[in-house]
Structure formats: structure tokens, C-alpha cells
């Protein structure tokens, strides 16, 4: 015990940690382990053929491809939005700043039906895109639009505090030494915010991979074309193919855990190298 925990006069450690571990085990850990245990009902070849069936592979391609594209767009515009919010004054700034978190707060089904309505052939934006031959709703592009929406706050909220913390003196010193504005951004500011930007990107990507609610309405869910992996799990469940659903869920879980690990490492990087130069 003495090596496990340092002495403290504050009481309640055993109670607090005990409750924490019990709660986590009951609500999170034991249920999660159920997925792994259940998938063990399959032999390895069965498991492999389930998770690599053509329809499943197509869903991975769409899920990861659209998530990646959405995260890239969010990285770029997220940085831009964070930059404008931190550095430039404009009317209604506080309102805009508050609105950034809308995708966190808005239930995903609401986001889903709304985006569908906007981008459908007769929607506010869809009606202008369709004559150009661009169909968004019920295509992979729709998936990308929905994932961009839900991933938007991540990059802004991770980059914003780091941008706020950058010392003005650093930029002034660079300017004194003759650097142009663009050189200062590229050589001073960008390297400083890169860890946070990468973290934001990873968070947006991770969230997009698991996303379900906002996507299924706009995706059209056509097998092999616009069917995301989480939907495939539900489809298998509805056909009472529990084992098949679990096998795919295990693949997603493993990927989530790897991403969580990467994000933790990135956050460590932000704390230890990003802020202080």
C-alpha cells in the first residue's frame, strides 16, 4: 500500500477510488469486454472473412476516407477560424465563438435531418448544386458534409488556447530580425501550434469514424457505395447476426483504442513542447 499510494492526511481515498473503479467496471469495462468475449465465438478464419467481406471493406473505405477528408477540411478551416477568433476583432465575435460548439450540443439526429434538408435536390444549397451535376445528399459527399459538421469544434477548440498563449514578443523579435509576416507564420507560429493542430485533427478524425446519427440520414445508405461501418453493425444486429455485428464492432473498438493512444501521446506533446518555445 505504501508504494501504491503516497501518504496524505486527506481522507476518502479508498472510498473514492473504490467507487470510481466499481462504476467504471460496471458501466464501461465489463460491457466493453463483452464485445471481445463474444467475438471469440468465431474462429479466426470466420472472424477474418466477416470483417473483410467486400461490403464491409467498402464501408471501411467510405468511413475512413470521408472521415479523413472531413478532418483535413476541419484542420484547415478550424485553424483559420481559431486564428480569426483570437486575433481579429469583429462585431458579434462572442456570439460566433459560442456558436462554434453547436455540433457538440446539437443532437446528431437533428443535425442529420437538417443537413439532409439543406443538401437535398430541392434544398437551400442542393438546388444550386444539382444543376452543376453535384449531388450531395444520398451520396458519399453527403457523408463527408455531415462528418465535417460534427468535427468542426475539435480543431478550433484545441488550437485556440495555444494561439492565445503565443507570446507577442516572439513575433516582434522575428519582425525586428527582418522576417516577413508569412515567414513569421511559417517559422514561428505554425511550429508552435502544430501539436495542437495535429491533436485537433486526430480528435475530429476519431469522432468521425464512430459517428452514426448525423450520417445515416444524408448518406442514403446504399450498400457498397454510401454505407458507413456503424450502420453495417446495426444492419447485422437487425438481422440477428449478433456475432457478425460484434466482429465488426471489435475492429472499430481496436481502431478507437489505437486512436485514443495516439491522441494521448499528441496531448503529451502539446503539453511538453507545444506551448513553451
Amino acid at each position: 500500500m505504501s508504494t501504491f499510494k503516497q501518504y496524505s492526511v486527506l481522507p476518502g481515498f479508498n472510498l473514492a477510488l473504490g467507487f470510481t473503479l466499481l462504476y467504471l467496471s460496471l458501466v464501461v469495462l465489463i460491457p466493453l469486454s463483452a464485445a471481445f468475449i463474444h467475438s471469440a465465438k468465431l474462429t479466426w478464419p470466420e472472424f477474418w472473412s466477416t470483417v473483410t467481406a467486400p461490403r464491409v471493406i467498402a464501408s471501411y473505405r467510405l468511413t475512413f476516407g470521408a472521415s479523413f477528408a472531413a478532418a483535413v477540411v476541419n484542420a484547415f478551416f478550424g485553424l483559420l477560424v481559431a486564428w480569426v477568433l483570437v486575433r481579429y476583432p469583429f462585431p458579434g465575435k462572442r456570439l460566433v465563438d459560442a456558436l462554434i460548439d453547436l455540433p457538440f450540443a446539437l443532437p446528431t439526429s437533428v443535425a442529420g435531418i437538417t443537413l439532409t434538408a439543406i443538401y437535398a435536390g430541392n434544398g437551400w444549397i442542393g438546388q444550386y448544386l444539382e444543376p452543376l451535376g453535384i449531388k450531395v445528399a444520398f451520396t458519399p459527399i453527403g457523408v463527408f458534409v455531415a462528418l465535417t459538421f460534427i468535427g468542426l469544434p475539435f480543431v478550433v477548440r484545441t488550437v485556440q488556447p495555444v494561439l492565445e498563449d503565443i507570446e507577442k514578443e516572439l513575433e516582434e523579435a522575428a519582425a525586428m530580425l527582418g522576417a516577413t509576416r508569412w515567414q513569421i507564420f511559417r517559422r514561428i507560429i505554425f511550429p508552435t501550434i502544430l501539436p495542437a493542430l495535429t491533436t485537433g485533427f486526430a480528435l475530429a478524425f476519431a469522432r468521425a469514424i464512430g459517428e452514426y446519427g448525423s450520417v445515416i440520414f444524408i448518406a442514403g445508405n446504399i450498400p457498397m457505395i454510401s454505407e458507413i461501418t456503424p450502420l453495417l453493425i446495426i444492419t447485422k444486429l437487425e438481422q440477428y447476426d449478433y456475432t457478425g455485428a460484434t466482429a465488426i464492432a471489435v475492429v472499430m473498438l481496436v481502431i478507437s483504442f489505437i486512436l485514443l493512444l495516439i491522441i494521448n501521446l499528441l496531448q503529451w506533446w502539446v503539453h511538453h513542447r507545444g506551448i513553451k518555445v
Partner: peptide, 22 residues
């Protein structure tokens, strides 16, 4: 701390599924 964050990184669909399995 990482374990506490775990539910954030799990797809909601998978979260539902594990309770069905139990």
C-alpha cells in the same frame, strides 16, 4: 484517466451493441 475517457472514443453504435450482448 485514459479509462475514464474511453467512452468518448467508442462509437455510439458499439456502445449500444455491448449492452445488447449482455
Amino acid at each position: 484517466i485514459s479509462l475514464i475517457d474511453l467512452p468518448f472514443s467508442v462509437s455510439p453504435v458499439v456502445a449500444g451493441l455491448i449492452y445488447v450482448l449482455i
